[in-house]
């Protein structure tokens, strides 16, 4: 069966999906990046191949798309037909799942986005600019501080009787407010519900500033798993919030759709290197270029001792020469 692969390498999680020619999801995978994107991609490929085999399916990869902050790295490792930013990928996935969607709220590990869609085209978007308060990492951190698994943490908010007021502007302020309320004797569910309200308020004031939020509204990204956050959005926007079934892998799904579009449109053969890429030896070497006082941190990616790609330089002297340098030995 012909299928398309989408890979989303985010700061916190790495997601891989496979869709068939009609866009139906065949297989999905959500694993932690753990700060090691190359290993995560290799591990992901291996797991998804095992999953396919275990289900007795045979697939032929006809196209690959990558997205997320590690999209470029993932693309050179697996061989991708499309490398796309997260905004486009998430919007495409949301449009596929909820026809007529006008607003996409996406909150991931490090950033939060708001995408405004009108007439099937992204017409405006915003991303958190200066601070990461209210993103998945902060919620993770708070759950760990309270010694609660994140799943339990997310459900506790629903039991709140009287949510307390927590400052949402900055995660440091939020944390000191939470500690103050906890030491005053407020119960945990009221504090967590208060935190969710604060984060939603912060999101709407910061990311949603000046944007027209119209229904249908889709909420996706890792944080959409958090029932407290869903409820807080429902309350703040006073309307129904749609959380799609595959909310946690929407970026990867979007990348897969985009790969399908590119391959079909250009009638091209995929550059996917195959599942056995996982056995290849990838190494990353970095050095500080001393050509000028910018001291750029140049990164070199090696595949089986050959330079695959280089980036990180401002002037382009390393990036643009990597084509000819494929034969450089690794020592």
């Amino acid at each position: 069966m012909k299928s398309y692969m989408g890979i989303d390498v985010g700061s916190v999680s790495t997601n891989i999906v496979l869709i068939d020619e009609k866009g139906k999801l065949i297989e999905k995978l959500y694993i932690r990046t753990n700060g090691q994107p190359i290993d995560a991609v290799k591990k992901g490929l291996k797991l998804i191949e095992e999953k396919i085999k275990a289900n007795g399916k045979s697939v032929e990869i006809a196209g690959v798309g990558t997205t997320g902050s590690g999209r470029k790295l993932a693309a050179v490792i697996v061989g991708a037909d499309v490398v796309k930013n997260e905004i486009t990928a998430h919007a495409v996935a949301a449009m596929n799942h909820v026809p007529g969607v006008q607003t996409v709220i996406e909150i991931g590990g490090q950033d939060s986005k708001l995408i405004i869609i009108r007439n099937g085209v992204v017409s405006d978007f915003a991303m958190n600019t200066v601070c990461a308060a209210g993103t998945g990492s902060f919620l993770d951190q708070q759950a760990a501080r309270l010694n609660l698994p994140i799943e339990k943490f997310s459900k506790l908010a629903l039991n709140a009787q009287a949510p307390v007021r927590i400052a949402g502007r900055c995660s440091v302020f939020a944390e000191s407010d939470m500690i103050h309320k906890q030491q005053m004797g407020h119960n945990l569910s009221d504090i967590i519900a208060g935190l969710c309200d604060a984060l939603v308020r912060n999101y709407l004031n910061n990311v949603g500033k000046g944007k027209e939020i119209l229904v249908p509204i889709v909420f996706q990204g890792g944080v959409a798993a958090n029932e407290g956050m869903r409820e807080a959005f429902r309350k703040a926007l006073n309307t129904e919030i749609i959380v799609p079934e595959n909310f946690d892998v929407m970026g990867a799904l979007g990348a897969a759709f985009l790969a399908r579009e590119a391959v079909v449109q250009n009638n091209q053969k995929t550059v996917f290197k195959g599942f056995d890429t996982v056995d290849h030896d990838f190494k990353v070497k970095g050095f500080e270029c001393s050509g000028c006082p910018n001291l750029c941190e140049v990164v070199e990616i090696y595949e089986n001792f050959q330079v695959l790609a280089r980036w990180g330089d401002r002037c382009g002297k390393w990036t643009e020469t990597h084509q000819e340098l494929k034969q450089v030995s690794f020592n």
């Binding site: 796309k84 930013n85 905004i87 017409s123």
Partner: peptide, 10 residues
């Protein structure tokens, strides 16, 4: 770059 790419794409 992510923001610029998304903006130009849009």
């Amino acid at each position: 770059i992510t923001r610029l790419e998304a903006f130009v794409d849009m």
